[in-house]
Design a protein around this nucleic acid. Structure first.
Lengths: 346, 346
DNA sequence: TTGAAAGCGCTAACAG
DNA sequence: CTGTTAGCGCTTTCAA
């Protein structure tokens, strides 16, 4: 059963396609009665405009692309969910592509999306991206790009981010306020800006509290895994038996630490406090539950779409986009791997 | 900078758009030399055909829709990932929509996807779907639908599933083989077929081993949460102090059980074995780690796309689709919440 | 071997 | 108020 078209309707009603189109679009210069007839028939035949034709005509597809480093990841699933929800409200659909942190994939995906005439692109940089020509090309083609989470200052586009430095500062500050004096930090590998910023936030909090920075308390994670945390915890305890706090740059690693400390019969949080980062779902079900920094993926996703939508509209009106940097607030989620603020010794 | 079109190329080369089109499409009746010139110019100008126009002409969009109950969910993220990966190989893009288990959303989403002229749809039923007219309508419109995971026998379409009954049978059988004699089962609420099938599998395994079925060992979960498992574990132990195995229909609930048993100082697996279902990521990091049934989301996603692709091609050739039911095998992942097979007393 | 013409379905400017 | 015309960019006869 082929789809009903404007022409079908027109023929049945003895009108021209143009009139039918206008009636359906609620143009003011159409006879009320005609309008009613058209709308009724359209509904009864379940008429749906062909979006391909509309797109070709209007130069818009009502589809955006979402480029994501890794789908199977609590934070990013939340991003997807937020984007889709916000998009739905504006009658937009979302195509999702995964880079697996590969620069090559990222380039290809942008091309694919351009070819599909998406109206805009939401992009989180892959870890291996160090140049941005491919992104500028997209923008030059008149397709707005909004970067989220992993961004680059070198791209002139709107961005939605969290302040990793501030968040890490707060996390460390929280450990200090609940009594920690010797805090180890587990950081990620060199590359991504987030890991650097979290490290800086940690240092700033120490400085603020006149705690001297001790480089031997910094541990570098090769991979972002439970077992890395597990391994490193042992090292920390060996190197610094008197450590009383661990701030890991991501929950999974923190949970590895938790497990190893438990096996070493080191009481958390009484002897050592542990703080994670992200607020993954699983932090709620570890023993003890993990205190962490809430990283609001869903909100970021929503906001990212909204900004992109705004940029799309601006561009459609022929105006120039003024990039906007939006920071989504994070907050500490105190759970049982840290002492309570009330417990703070004075 | 507007996009290069066929017309641009034609004008520059002094050819007609038709010839350029054919050259690019490698038609046999084009002069080799012309072909070369065209291709070279196209590349140097970075020509990309307008997919909207192509779609309008060829009645295909090279986009499929993926309707998913819930995105933020380990199993479904894996599905997404698998679908996207398989789609990419065939040069297809994927639009994702979420139902949140709502029938109304499901209907709307199918309509949205039809309106966007997707070439096919991958669908997992929402828990509240009990009629299938909306799906039949899509199929009647000539858009192939492939159901995955949560399916209905009443829809005449290809399907990709796991055999829940068999999987649950194996899980229960495993508990029995490792020495359990009194096994409680935590099942989901009535509706979804999966929960019913897992329950049946459990019963069949008991029967096979001549263990009488005891209805008081069946516990029904209101919500699919950690805390439900936590609550129910207490009840189980109160009702049946001599229980020695728990088979939960999903990992999260099983993990709740694990936690409560630990708080009750009941040794897992020595006193009580616990078996989950799904093989979520977090089963690897609980204490003890959770034995479970591996539910292969990624493979299901890949396979679902491949079947859909096949159906799309069949239809395009004007042939009739012969629905295919594909079962993806599951397997037990033995971890530390169950005894080893070797430990089996005899 | 190439090109003119028609048309996919829709919309907008303009004329009637 | 309604219809005609033209065209978005591409593909496919069919004629040259």
């Amino acid at each position: 059963m082929p789809k009903t078209t404007l022409k079908h309707l027109a023929k049945i009603l003895g009108l021209s396609p143009a009139t039918v189109s206008k009636a359906l679009k609620n143009y003011p210069d159409i006879n009320e009665n005609t309008k009613k007839r058209v709308i009724e028939l359209a509904e009864s035949l379940n008429y749906q405009p062909n979006s391909l034709a509309q797109g070709l005509r209007n130069k818009e597809s009502k589809i955006i692309g979402l480029v994501i480093p890794e789908i199977v990841h609590h934070f990013f699933s939340n991003i997807i969910s937020g984007v889709i929800k916000a998009a739905e409200k504006r009658d937009y659909l979302v195509i999702i592509l995964q880079t697996n942190e590969s620069f090559e994939q990222e380039k290809l995906h942008l091309k694919r999306l351009m070819d599909k005439n998406v109206d805009g692109i939401l992009l989180s940089l892959s870890d291996n991206t160090t140049q941005y020509k491919h992104i500028k090309q997209v923008i030059d083609r008149g397709i707005p790009v909004v970067m989220y989470d992993k961004i680059s200052k070198l791209v002139h586009a709107s961005k939605v981010i969290i302040d990793d430095q501030k968040a890490a500062f707060n996390a460390t500050q929280y450990l200090i306020e609940t009594g920690c004096k010797k805090i180890a930090h587990i950081r990620g590998d060199l590359k991504p800006q987030t890991t650097i910023d979290r490290f800086i936030g940690y240092k700033k909090a120490l400085a603020k509290n006149n705690i001297p920075f001790d480089p031997t308390l910094i541990y570098k994670c090769k991979s972002l895994t439970f077992s890395e945390g597990f391994k490193i915890a042992k090292k920390i305890i060996n190197d610094h038996p008197d450590v009383d706090g661990v701030f890991a740059f991501t929950d999974l690693v923190a949970i590895g630490v938790l497990k190893r400390l438990s096996e070493l019969n080191i009481s958390v949080p009484n002897q050592v406090s542990v703080m994670g980062f992200s607020d993954w779902f699983l932090t709620k079900i570890t023993t003890p539950t993990l205190s962490t920094v809430h990283q609001p993926g869903f909100e970021m996703g929503q906001k990212a779409f909204e900004v992109l939508y705004k940029d799309i509209c601006t561009l459609k009106k022929g105006q120039k986009i003024i990039p906007e940097i939006i920071e989504i607030p994070t907050y500490i989620v105190p759970r049982n791997s840290t002492l309570k603020l009330l417990d703070k010794p004075r």
